[in-house]
Nucleic acid binder design. Structure first.
Lengths: 260, 260
DNA sequence: CGCCGCGTTGAAGAAAATCAAAGCACGTGG
DNA sequence: CCACGTGCTTTGATTTTCTTCAACGCGGCG
């Protein structure tokens, strides 16, 4: 409750989309509460529980999954810092998926009604949030393509490239080789494959010099090579700031927001 | 441009979520333009073209697809009347998927900037639209589970049950047997299978008395049976009107909307 | 030391793809 | 009215991809 709370990280996530007015920044800041931390491999929420909160991930990696009746699991989403998590349960009573940490993690909590508050007070932020869920939907779509119409090799390559692209957008790359702390069992459940087959496919990529094992996870050695294998097209990760601004200009001829 | 334009169908789609104020209804109505019609098996838009419009489907069936470089195709979405189509390209420059009609179809067009206008003028509608995309995302997630972790048999059954559930929510069922005009090639591309395999799987279901061929498409004979095969749980199709109202109450203590 | 989580490997089997060819309904033109 | 083409379904035979089962390796840690 002290004023030492650093809201810059949160504000920055929204400003990735369009510059915010002072008022909007203050509005966002006023909703920020202290972040919560979770240890590696712990549950943030379980599937079936009530969906009152959403989060912005600030540190670490987490993933959303769905447990099936026959004991198998589908990993639905893998989140990196900056990602907003849980918006899709807006106006749902229960969560359709669980959320687990892959590493130690830090998350900023928000309540769903706060989202409605945001909508009520700032059309700009409303547009930004809509853009965010639209982009997220594009990612899910691409993952459907991956699950439905690509070979194991392509699936894996595509998944890795997407991940590193998303990381690159949120933090500077630490050199050329990128290390992803993703165990093979997780890859399997994300790609709809068996662990064994993921392992063999990893070996293939390894033998081609594209990746390298690194503890529990792997390191990308040749991003361009992977991109070629996956026929990766990053269009779906790029929102269009100009288009969004144009929408806002069109709509907001009335509301002049007092700038700082 | 005449006043004979019937906006009730459109307004109804939004009122599925919460009751709208007079002002909101008028706002929605004011954005409605005459519907456009397309013949069976024609393209509404192509992947890669600019995304200036979205639509509300009023009659017929359409589907969104993605063509792959190797000539294969993934069907991403199958829409029935009442569905809102194209929201996910909000603030994207280009469409990530094409849209084709499966039957003769009628769609009400809206422009993307109109959406921003809506946001700026009505927090309630903003909430409704957010709920709609959240629900849509839940559907995509379920489809990911389907693609990743279910057998051909289960995939097919699940797809059919989802479809009939969604239909049931939008129009009264014409008896017990429901006819779905979906060719097998489409099922294949939606489920990530080959046409041949879909055909064989259909035969299995047929032999179990669950479905029946019907022209180009099939008829559901035993919905409960299919439900069991797919282990279908409809949670993800149910938004929660009460929760949404509660959000609105919490947030809108300030803005009292003048009721009719 | 011994257990646990994760990666790795081989062998066998199942599920689904591919290839190739018919069949069948429907509409069109001769 | 029939021949013909077209789009979709159906079927069989074969091959590929991926799964399952089973086992072992290996580093970390109580």
């Amino acid at each position: 409750m002290t004023d030492t709370l650093d809201t810059r990280f949160i504000v920055k996530q929204f400003e990735n989309y369009i510059p915010l007015s002072c008022k909007d920044k203050e509005l966002v800041s006023s909703l920020v509460k202290p972040p919560v931390t979770y240890l590696k491999n712990t549950s943030v929420w379980h599937q079936g529980t009530s969906s009152e909160r959403f989060y912005i991930l600030s540190k670490g990696w987490v993933y959303a999954y769905r447990n099936m009746e026959d004991g198998t699991r589908q990993v639905l989403d893998l989140y990196v810092p900056g990602d907003i998590i849980g918006l899709r349960e807006f106006a749902f009573r229960k969560r359709g998926s669980g959320l687990m940490t892959l590493s130690n993690a830090e998350l900023y909590p928000f309540s769903m009604p706060q989202l409605s508050t945001l909508f009520a007070h700032s059309p700009s932020l409303c547009n930004v949030l809509f853009t965010i869920v639209a982009r997220h939907q594009a990612i899910l779509l691409e993952r459907m393509v991956n699950l439905g119409r690509r070979s194991a090799r392509e699936k894996l390559a595509h998944f890795l490239v997407e991940l590193s692209e998303r990381l690159r957008r949120v933090q500077r790359i630490p050199g050329n080789a990128l290390e992803l702390p993703v165990p093979q069992a997780l890859l399997a459940d994300a790609l709809g494959l068996s662990v064994v087959h993921v392992n063999r496919t990893c070996r293939e990529l390894k033998e081609n010099g594209l990746v390298m094992p690194a503890g529990s996870g792997l390191t990308i050695l040749d991003l361009e090579g992977l991109r070629k294998v996956a026929q990766f097209d990053a269009y779906y990760l790029e929102h269009d700031a100009e288009t969004l601004s144009a929408y806002l200009r069109t709509s907001a001829e009335a509301n002049v927001s007092p700038d700082c």
